[in-house]
Amino acid sequence: MNATASMCSPRTVRGTHAFKIAGYSLHRGLGVGRYVRSATFDVGGYLWRIEYYPDAEMEMKNGDYASVSLELVSTNAQARAFFEVRLVDQAKKLPSFVVLSRKKPVVFRAKPPTYMSEDFLQPLPYLKDDSLVVECDITVMRESEVAPIATTFDIQVPPSDLSDNLGELLKTGEETDITFEVRGELFPAHRIVLAMRSRVFKAELFGPMGDRTRQTITIEDMQPAVFSALLHFIYKDSLPSMGHLVGDDAEEMVKHLLVAADRYAMERMKVICESILCKTLNVRNVTTTLALADQHQCNHLKDACLEFITSPDRTDDVVASEGYANLKRSCPAVIADIFERATKSRKI
C-alpha cells in the first residue's frame, strides 16, 4: 500500500486602516445618504475605502442612527475578502464595538460596484473630544498567483567555481599565514580555510591551547604526498588525481588518506575513501582493510568487509589466508563480529 498526501492552502494578506472623523458634531445634519470618506488604502494589492454616514444611509423609522460601508475602489478589479469594521474607544474604557463584519469571504467588484454597509445607533459613548475612530481589518484571499510569462530564452548559468578559486589560492600561496613541515617538505596554507574545514585544525590553530603566533607546524607520521592530498581536499573538496598510481600503490594511498581524514575529522573525505576501498576488496586485502575500518570507526567499510568475508563462496579462502591469522592476533574482537555476521547469514 502506498499512501500519499498533499495540501492546498490559500494565501492571505491582512491589513488594518484607522479612519478618524474629527468634529463629529459638525458632520451631523449632513443628511440621510450622505457620507464622509476615508482616504483610500491598500490591502493585498487592492484599494479600499470606508464611507461613514453620520445621519444613516437610509431613512430610519425609529431612533437616531448612523451607517458605515466598505467599498473596493480599484479599477476593473475583483477581490475575495473578509473583514471587520469597528468603533474604537479612544479613552480605552469600553471594548471595541463591531458595526460591520463578514467572517466568510465576500466577492467585491469594482464594476458594478460592490460594497457592504450596516446601520447602528449613534456612537455617542465612543466619541472623545468630538472625534470618532473607525477601524477596519481586511483579509484578502490570494488563492492563485499570476503564472510567469513563458519565454524561449534559456540563460545558461555557469557552474560554481568556488573550489577552483580556493584551489588556485592554495597553488599560488597568496596570503598564506601558516606553514606545515612534513618530512622536510614545506606546505604553506591559510589558517582560516583549514579551521573552516576541519574542527581539529580549528582547535589547533585557534583553540585555547593553540598558539596563534605560531608560523610553522611539524606533522609527524605522515607522508608528504598524503598531506598534500589532504590539503587538496580541504581546498577543493575532492581527492587529487591518482592516475600515476596503480594496483597496490593506489590502494595504499587511499588507506593513508582515510587515516589522515580520520585524524583531522574530514568526514566526507573519509567516506569517499571508504567507498573506494569497498570496490577493491578481494581475498588478499579484505582482512587488512577490515582491521583498518575497525581501528578508525569506518562503519560502512567494516560492513562491506564483513559481508565479503561471510559470503559462502569466499569464507573458506579468507579463513585460510595469512591475513586472517594476523587479524585473529591483532583484532580478536573483529573475529567475533565475523562469527556473529556469519551466524545471522545462515539463519536468513
Rank of each mutant, 00 (worst) to 15 (best):
V32E: 09
A18E: 10
A79T: 07
T16W: 07
A250K: 10
V318E: 11
L100C: 09
N299R: 08
E84M: 14
G45L: 05
P113C: 03
I276R: 13
G29W: 06
H256D: 05
S101T: 09
I50K: 08
T176W: 10
Q90W: 05
A66T: 13
L121V: 13
L277K: 04
A5K: 14
L30A: 05
M266E: 07
T114N: 02
C298M: 03
V85H: 13
Y24P: 14
A56E: 03
S163F: 03
H17Q: 05
I338N: 02
L281I: 11
G207M: 07
Q122P: 10
D237C: 04
R341Y: 00
E181Q: 10
S198W: 08
S117H: 10
A79R: 03
E267S: 05
I272A: 13
D119L: 02
R341N: 01
T315R: 13
L292G: 06
G207L: 03
P112F: 11
M266L: 14
R346E: 04
D137G: 01
A91K: 15
V98E: 12
V283L: 01
E174D: 13
L245W: 15
T176Q: 07
H300W: 07
E181W: 05
A81C: 06
S74G: 00
S345A: 12
S69D: 12
I276G: 13
V319S: 04
F19R: 06
K103G: 01
N76F: 02
L72G: 00
S69H: 09
K347R: 15
G29D: 01
E307N: 10
Y126D: 06
R37K: 14
D294C: 08
G45M: 00
A81H: 08
R80M: 15
S38A: 00
I50F: 02
T280Y: 01
K93W: 04
V85Y: 04
A81E: 14
V140K: 08
W48G: 11
A333C: 11
F187E: 07
C298P: 04
V226T: 10
G44R: 11
Q156F: 03
T139K: 15
L194C: 02
Y52P: 01
L47P: 01
A293D: 01
H232P: 02
S74R: 03
P312N: 10
